[in-house]
């Protein structure tokens, strides 16, 4: 700092007479002022015109970029929401379909069972009817047969004993015999 002071004072001392230090360094009032004014002109031009223009452009672009990012984020959010909605709907639909299918399956099996049961019942009923009819027929046939046998045997007996055995007692006798033999055969 002392050097600075000496320098300044030396320069001042020289300035008073002859070729000064400032002259040697090329410093003079006219050149200095013109350079100063030149610089100030540039300063004002940049300050008042060019820098604001560029800064405005930069700010506008930044605002635009920010807006774009916000829009993109919003779009992303919307997309996520829509996707979750769609998933939910699909899930619901799936569940409903499952339910419907299950219900349908259950119904179908119920119906099938019912039909089966009915069919079996009817088949049984038909079978029983048939058996009953066959038995009836068989009974009737047997009765006819036994009557025939009784008649035949009475005829045969009357022929054998040559006399009519149409008395009621005899007839009963023969019938009892036939029934007994019938029962014995059945057993």
């Amino acid at each position: 700092m002392n050097i600075t002071l000496t320098l300044a004072s030396a320069a001042l001392a020289h300035a008073e007479g002859g070729k000064s230090g400032l002259d040697a360094l090329g410093i003079n009032a006219a050149a200095f002022l013109s350079q100063l004014v030149t610089f100030l002109v540039v300063f004002v031009l940049l300050w008042k015109y060019f820098l604001p223009v560029i800064q405005r452009t930069l700010e506008k672009r930044q605002a635009l970029i920010r807006e774009g990012i916000e829009n993109a984020e919003k779009a992303k959010r919307d997309l996520a929401e829509a996707t979750s909605n769609a998933e939910r709907i699909i899930l619901d639909a799936k569940r409903q379909a499952q339910d419907t299918i299950e219900r349908a399956t259950k119904n179908a099996s119920q119906v099938a069972q019912q039909i089966e049961v009915e069919a079996r019942e009817r088949a049984e009923k038909i079978g029983q009817q048939q058996i009953a009819r066959i038995q009836q027929e068989a009974n009737r046939a047997r009765m006819e047969l036994s009557r025939d046998v009784v008649n035949l045997s009475i005829d045969a007996a009357s022929k054998v004993i040559s006399r009519s055995v149409d008395s009621n007692d005899n007839r009963r006798l023969v019938e009892e015999f036939v029934t007994a033999s019938d029962q014995a055969r059945n057993n």
Binding site: I3, H14, G21
Partner: peptide, 13 residues
């Protein structure tokens, strides 16, 4: 820089 100034003064004065 002060040294430079001194050197310049010596050289050109």
């Amino acid at each position: 820089i002060y040294a430079l100034v001194v050197a310049l003064l010596i050289k050109f004065i």
